[in-house]
Amino acid sequence: MKSNTAETNTPAIAAPAPEAKAAAPNRASSIISVARSAAGLLVAVALVWIAFSFLTDGVFVSDRNVTNLMRQTAITAMVALGMLVVVAQGEIDLSVGSFMSLCVTVVALLEASHLVSPWVTVAAAIGMGVLVGVWNGTWVARFGLPSFVATLGGLMLFRGIALALSGGRTISGISEGIRFFGDAFLSGPVLWVFLAIAALISLLPLRHLNDPARRRQALVRAILGFASVALLSWSTLSYLGLPMPVAITLVAAAILSWMLTNTVWGRHVYAVGGNRAAARSAGIPITRHLMTSFILIGVLTGLGTLMFVGRLGSAPPESGLFLELNAIAAVVIGGASLYGGTGTVPGILLGALLMQSLSNGLSLLNVPTAYQNIVSGIVLMLAVYVDVLSKRGGKLFVRP
């Protein structure tokens, strides 16, 4: 009888062991989830700002530098918004930096000729974005090339054409009409109206307070959104106003966020990246969605080009260098997965701000560009590693 009792009790004692082993990955997954959330990203940005403010004796958070930081972030964020749609469908675009170099060169040549109006230049930048999007989309969606290979080819192709057109020289002579996109400010009543609309949009999640399942998330999103608008108001009202690149990027972000969360197209974007076979079985037009995503990132990069040229007033031959890596890093840091199916616009904006804050702060500390690239590379690798961790339940190592 003792022997039988021992045998029956043994499984009862041993049973909790697997649950205990499984608890660690679950806790790790929860920590990763919080770190990649909007709240976690805001904390990370705040820590970076505090650190650089201390190291630069307050220069980092001065009105002038904050305005400069917002302009720099706007360009990276604009491209990252397009990268989000591409990555959410399980693809990638490595050609955006080289395309910006080509687009910058063409825009500068048109401006330097003084033969066309600024509106023609704007149309040319957007039109080039459409053509490059069709080019990349055709190779990926129609011919079936992996997007990594197709856009890597574009990276070399577009950079080569840009250097051939510019002769490796900086082109100047940008008109005031194009400078407007990168150098102007919203101020006065227009700025107040813009900030009021932004505040109202930030409070939209509160409409879900009556839904118990979404109440907590809605409250957190509303608080974070309103806090972001308050920070934006403080930084703009205390200086010259809201930089035009920031205003353009925020408008584009608001439109894209609404499309991704409230339209059939947005649901299909995540469906294609989440499970392409299931999406195809459900009748979702995969080819059309992939083409649209590459056209969208091309157009947004074209707009980013106008902001870049307008801010500098010239077109240096190294324009767009490493832009694709900064955009990808912003997307992954912002919570999107390189495996597809996830990602939010607020996360991407915060990811771009974090990346640009690191670059800006290191520049203020006179850290050489080589070491800045080292830091950016490490941040990108860590961001992708965190993405991988989230997919395998928080396990640090691959099982041999």
Score class of each variant (00 low, 15 high):
Ala6Ile: 14
Thr10Gly: 00
Thr10Ile: 13
Pro11Gln: 05
Ala12Arg: 13
Ala14Pro: 00
Ala15Cys: 01
Arg36Gly: 02
Ser37Trp: 08
Ala44Lys: 02
Ser53Leu: 03
Phe54Gln: 12
Thr56Pro: 08
Asp57Ile: 03
Val61Asp: 07
Ser62Met: 06
Arg64His: 11
Ala77Gln: 02
Gln89Val: 06
Glu91Asp: 10
Ile92Arg: 03
Leu115Ala: 15
Ser117Trp: 11
Gly127Tyr: 08
Val130Ala: 04
Val132Cys: 10
Phe143Asn: 05
Pro146Trp: 10
Ser147Glu: 05
Ser147Met: 05
Leu155Tyr: 13
Gly160Gln: 12
Gly160Tyr: 11
Leu163Asp: 12
Leu163His: 14
Gly167Glu: 11
Thr170Val: 12
Ser172Pro: 01
Ala184Arg: 04
Gly188Ala: 07
Val193Gly: 06
Val193Ile: 15
Ala196Val: 11
Leu200Phe: 14
Arg216Lys: 02
Leu219Val: 11
Ile223Tyr: 07
Thr236Phe: 12
Val246Met: 05
Ala247Val: 04
Leu260Tyr: 03
Thr261Val: 12
Asn262Arg: 15
Trp265Asn: 09
His268Pro: 03
Val272Gln: 05
Arg280Thr: 08
Ser281Lys: 08
Ala282Pro: 00
Ile286Asp: 05
Thr287Leu: 06
Arg288Leu: 07
Arg288Phe: 04
Ser293His: 02
Gly302Glu: 07
Leu306Tyr: 04
Leu306Val: 02
Leu312Trp: 09
Gly313Arg: 07
Gly313Lys: 06
Pro316Thr: 08
Glu318His: 08
Ile328Gln: 06
Val331Lys: 00
Val332Asn: 00
Gly340Thr: 00
Thr344Ser: 10
Pro346Gln: 02
Gly347Val: 13
Gln356Lys: 09
Asn360Ala: 15
Ser363Ala: 15
Leu365Gln: 09
Leu380Cys: 05
Met381Cys: 14
Leu382Ile: 15
Asp387Leu: 04
Gly394Tyr: 09
Leu396Met: 14
Phe397Met: 10
Phe397Gly: 02
Pro400Arg: 13
